[in-house]
Amino acid sequence: MTSDIALAGPDAANAEAEVLRKSPFAIRGLTVSYDQKPAVFSVDATIRPGQMTAIVGPNGAGKSTLLKAALGIVKPLSGQITSLGRPLAQEMHRIAYVPQRASVDWDFPVRVIDVVQMGLYREIGLLKRLSGGQKSKAMACLARVGMEDFAKRQIGQLSGGQQQRVFLARALAQDADLYLLDEPFAGVDAATEKAIIEVLKSLRAEGRTVVAVHHDLSTVPEYFDDVLLLNVRKIAEGPVAEVFTDAALEAAYGGRLASARITTNAATG
């Protein structure tokens, strides 16, 4: 990647630097492999600021892996991840990550409000007690997802949709510029889906950038501005209206789309 630019001359290098400086989340040459098998192969992506981007692709396409590798949770084989031109690793304080709901043990002995307060860790640090302001901030984040009445509940008592809202409230408490969400709508009820999308849209209205791994192709045009189509390699990226086409979907999912959607869901879902 970089060598291509070097060959293309200083103008191209400057243009690339300018692109990277503007993007809150840019991926260059990301390759991740599990047990010698590439899960993500040589992906470039440039997320536009202040937009909502869906990462879409069949099961096993490497969507979650892409996020985790970009965040340093899993170790990539190669690749540069930047935010506004700086290495992402140095910008983590501006980033909030919402993992898949199923990735944690909801039996863990904490209350809803304790989970939200985890989002304040960078403010609080090791030993300081929570200030009154921080407590009310956590409560306000919970109210923003409509869960303030559940603050004192043990998290194991929540429904899947409520758990997802708590995760979103924790991310809100981080007060980030870039929100990376892994399947925020997986297994949630319709009311929760609506509540979450409203919160995400309000984040966009505040000028923040939202990137979400998304499964439901039918809601992509309704919810998102941009889309990154992935199937180990990048298939397409750009505004939904331009790149979310039948041809691109066929390239991502392979074969006839309708049957592909059913079989991929049945095979690994």
Binding site: Y97, D105, M118, Y121
Partner: peptide
Amino acid sequence: RPLAISTFDEGFAATL
């Protein structure tokens, strides 16, 4: 705090 957070959600803890 770090112990509790990373025990509950290691991926999230790493991003902190």
